[in-house]
């Protein structure tokens, strides 16, 4: 058993040099520094796939230029032409988090708009709440189901009860269902669990 565990660790490339046959599973866990920033194209691809949106339309600035193009450097892309930046920046800049917010917020809004335009049985992402409602009850089963749906799509797992409760608190009396949907999507999509891998 221990030998098998050691082999698995080596195959994962996660054990340090001191790993022995006595290593526990905790010793073999990947080091925290292995996290990687999800850069421009990966970010946009993941987001578009999660919300089933066209990449080119998830975010445009001033209605004309894709955000990926306007904020490419901030999002961690190279820019070999205008800035002769052949290799992307090693780490985020002060504008990175704001550019990410713009992409996420816009994409979530586009997803809501797309689902608002079609009949309820043709909706894609926001299928558990009535998008036309003036407000939602945080305790509503539909809200909980919608949070799970977003967690599954964006993070590939169900939300915990605590997470459901935190997101559901965005549904207040003065927040419409469509605004809640956008905010819930945005709050989950901007977690580091989505932004890093």
């Amino acid at each position: 058993m221990k030998r098998s565990l050691f082999i698995v660790c080596v195959l994962l490339g996660a054990c340090n040099a001191e790993t022995s046959a006595d290593a526990s599973t905790q010793d073999c866990a990947p080091p925290a520094e292995s996290l990687r920033w999800k850069r421009a194209d990966v970010l946009v691809n993941d987001l578009a796939g999660s919300l089933e949106l066209e990449q080119a339309t998830i975010c445009t600035e001033l209605g004309t230029t894709p955000c990926r193009e306007v904020h490419g450097i901030s999002l961690g892309a190279s820019e070999p032409f205008l800035n002769t930046l052949y290799e992307p920046l090693p780490r985020p800049m002060v504008t990175t988090a704001l550019a990410i917010d713009r992409v996420m917020l816009s994409a979530c809004r586009r997803g809501v708009e797309r689902d608002q335009r079609v009949a309820s049985d043709e909706r894609v992402v926001f299928t558990h709440i009535e998008l036309g409602a003036a407000s939602l009850d945080p305790a509503d089963a539909g809200v909980k189901a919608q949070v799970h749906e977003l967690y599954q799509r964006l993070l590939g797992r169900d939300a915990t009860d605590d997470e459901v409760a935190m997101v559901a608190e965005l549904a207040t009396d003065d927040v419409s269902a469509e605004t809640f949907a956008t905010l819930a999507c945005f709050s989950i999509a901007t977690t580091t669990e989505f932004l890093f891998y």
Binding site: G63, V70, H71, I73, E79, L85, M93, R102, L105, S106
Partner: peptide, 22 residues
């Protein structure tokens, strides 16, 4: 690093100027 001087303004805010957002 700034790529587009005309649109840097938009990179200084996380939501202003996006159509239809909360």
């Amino acid at each position: 690093l700034i790529g587009d001087p005309w649109q840097l303004a938009l990179a200084t805010h996380g939501s202003r100027g996006l159509a239809g957002v909360p």
